[in-house]
Design a protein around this nucleic acid. Structure first.
Lengths: 217, 217
DNA sequence: CCCCCGTGAACAAGGCAGAACTGGTCGACG
DNA sequence: CGTCGACCAGTTCTGCCTTGTTCACGGGGG
């Protein structure tokens, strides 16, 4: 769903496409600016937007493997709230939530009011929560440090698996044409090459050309 | 900033507290439901909400060190867009963005219109981007604007260095393999054949140049 | 209102480091 | 008043860097 579709979907609820558009843009801007200022935007039941500082670190160019220094920066972060997580992870919760939403949509169309139905719906959802506080967790930390060193192995495993997967496809196609890994050395990554070849479409070419022209100009 | 404050801040823009409240709730719900369905919600310049699957894994209660089984689930994820990241990380970008926002807020209050100012603002922002091309810049810089042809060379240089690094790990690198760009020629129509090769390179080069320029600016 | 263009967005690859997850409790918000 | 969110901590794991490339979207012009 893109922005246009979102606006379209909200059109009914907000009383017109204009309102919907303005609303979406306004909210987006507000959140953006607020987060930029350093304040967090907490929307209950949905999530929290906040500015998160990132320390400088040593990155790595995936293509070349070359190390690059990355200076500290700040990035926006969103932490989904409980309700949101539940609805996304739980189908039942989704239905419950949807029901509530419908009610709200119906009544809230022109009239402003109906928070009541919403609340009801909300209540229903929590009931399904699995978290409950039943475990008392008596003993503090008996064997906390029993850490298992299996980690490294596991880590390795994953990447290993990944590599083959990638290799296979790559090799398959370009075998005789232009080995991805090898050729790319020059400039183009394997897959690009293949694709380009196949789809060296005029359109694409044109677009590229145009772009170039535009930029140059 | 909590939800109430957000609504209050938007009150002016959206023509009343009621509208603001309805708008916020409607959007939140819409996003929640859409993500829950599995669709992603992409808002250009802001970010993308999507449902992300998480594999089952063995968790651990940090307090007790006790292992707990966590079954696979899905969680909502938000990936901030370029503009958002810029505004948050860059003070200058923030100011630019703020300026645009003000204009929009002022005119957009009752009237629907002014996207124009926004666009302007957006454009300005990218200019300030600090992100990339710097690396390539040094080489390209000297000839960039004068000699277009120089660009390709520069570009090549970077990748070239990369090649060895990657090649080593990858190992399979037939030197004779045709250059990616060249190879594709086969697909290309007669007249384009030669041209395509050339053109493609040029295009790429240009793009690189453009980007670099933009950044520099 | 439609079409085209420009520009944002996603992908991929390879390591490392920050981030998430769980969970009990207090504070805050609705 | 009821309930959601933040927090601490250890381990696991996910994202992030770059940069080219291609696709699609948003917006402006006709």
């Amino acid at each position: 769903m893109n922005k246009a579709e979102l606006v379209d979907a909200l059109e009914t609820r907000l009383g017109g496409k204009r309102q919907a558009t303005v609303a979406v843009e306004a909210i987006v801007e507000m959140i953006t600016l607020t987060v930029a200022k350093g304040d967090k935007v907490a929307i209950s039941g949905f999530g929290t937007f906040e500015k998160q500082a990132r320390n400088a670190r040593t990155g790595r160019n995936p293509r070349t493997g070359e190390a690059v220094k990355i200076k500290k920066t700040s990035v926006p972060r969103f932490r989904p709230g409980t309700a949101f997580k539940e609805v996304v992870s739980d189908t039942k919760a989704l239905r419950a939530y949807t029901a509530g939403a419908k009610e709200r949509a119906a009544s809230g169309l022109t009239s402003v009011a109906p928070a009541a139905p919403a609340t009801t719906a909300r209540k229903a959802a929590p009931a399904t929560r699995t978290s409950a506080a039943k475990t008392a967790a008596p003993a503090a930390a008996p064997a906390r440090k029993t850490a298992t060193k299996a980690a490294p192995a596991a880590r390795k495993a994953a990447p290993a698996k990944a590599a083959p997967a990638k290799a296979a496809p790559a090799k398959a196609a370009p075998a005789k044409a232009a080995p991805a890994k090898a050729a790319p050395a020059k400039t183009a990554p394997a897959r690009s090459a293949a694709k380009t070849t196949t789809a060296a479409r005029t359109t694409t070419a044109k677009t590229a050309t145009k772009r170039a022209a535009a930029k140059k100009a």
